[in-house]
Nucleic acid binder design. Structure first.
Length: 266
DNA sequence: ATCTTTACCTGACTGC
DNA sequence: TGCAGTCAGGTAAAGA
């Protein structure tokens, strides 16, 4: 559920708390959370090294060290925050990064899907470009390169990084494009409309500090507000904000997809 | 190349 | 109140 706007909100708030700090210990409570994090790398390249920056790439949150990035993927129920003890403020703490002042960066994850890993370079992630940095031309090229349904293209992290189920549906509604439209059947005009809709949808969601459906929380424990402004996501049977006809819900590539049959056309 | 299925997991919710 | 069943969705891997 955390998508680009949620992770970007996390990044901004954690950056103010973590840059310049030096971790002295790591504790894993659920081994699979750090199954791809080599202890030798932790000891040689992360511990006792200063955090140079807090970055985001797609849906990954990264702590930047001189040697590379400690990456966190929140999957559906991940949370991150700073706390005074290693067990955190909820029952689902899976990992803690301890600092010399006795505080901890907590990674909490009820469903245990989240993972923490180290990469020397972000290109190892094989992600597509950032949707907020892409030109209209880049969007056009990505859409035209595939005959897959546009909803599937938006969710493919190797094509565009950071969009998930919620903001894919919201962007397609804003652009008045049917989720089953093949990417290479979008006219340049409609591709540009979708590109602008994606940017605007993501930027607005960042302004609202992300969406709290059930699990997502900002580092201070409070909820985001983006969910108050959804036009279609989670609104099956509710009136379309544009035409008042009921919102439909279908499956596209096994993902629930919300759209307006009247307003969104092929 | 692309899609489908399965696996990973558990809390929240629904219906009986 | 309890219990079974369903749903939620990001990604990797395997199979079609």
């Amino acid at each position: 559920m955390p998508e680009l706007p949620e992770v970007e909100t996390l990044r901004r708030q954690l950056e103010a708390l973590l840059v310049g700090r030096v971790p002295t210990a790591m504790i894993t409570f659920w081994p699979r959370t750090t199954e791809h994090l080599e202890p030798s790398i932790v000891n040689a390249r992360l511990l006792h090294q200063p955090i140079r920056g807090v970055t985001r790439r797609g849906k990954y949150l990264g702590l930047q060290f001189d040697a590379g990035w400690l990456l966190f993927h929140l999957k559906m129920t991940g949370r991150m925050y700073v706390w005074e003890d290693a067990r955190g403020r909820d029952p689902w703490t899976r990992f803690s990064l301890g600092f010399s002042d006795g505080s901890y960066l907590i990674f909490s994850d009820a469903r245990k899907f989240g993972r923490i890993r180290f990469v020397a370079g972000l290109e190892e992630l094989n992600l597509g470009p950032e949707p907020l940095d892409m030109t209209l031309q880049t969007y056009r090229r990505v859409f035209a390169a595939s005959g897959s349904r546009i909803k599937a293209i938006l969710l493919d992290q190797s094509k565009i990084a950071g969009i998930g189920n919620i903001y894919a549906d919201e962007s397609l509604f804003a652009a008045r494009i049917h989720p089953l439209t093949p990417g290479n059947r979008l006219s340049p005009v409609r591709a540009d409309r979708l590109a602008r809709a994606i940017r605007q949808t993501l930027l607005q969601a960042i302004d609202f500090e992300g969406a709290t459906i059930s699990w997502y929380r900002k580092p201070d424990g409070s909820a985001g507000q983006s969910q108050e402004h959804f036009q279609v996501y989670g609104r099956r049977h509710a009136p379309c904000p544009r035409c008042a006809r009921p919102i439909s819900k279908i499956l596209v590539n096994q993902r629930s997809t919300h759209y307006c049959r009247q307003c969104q056309r092929y």
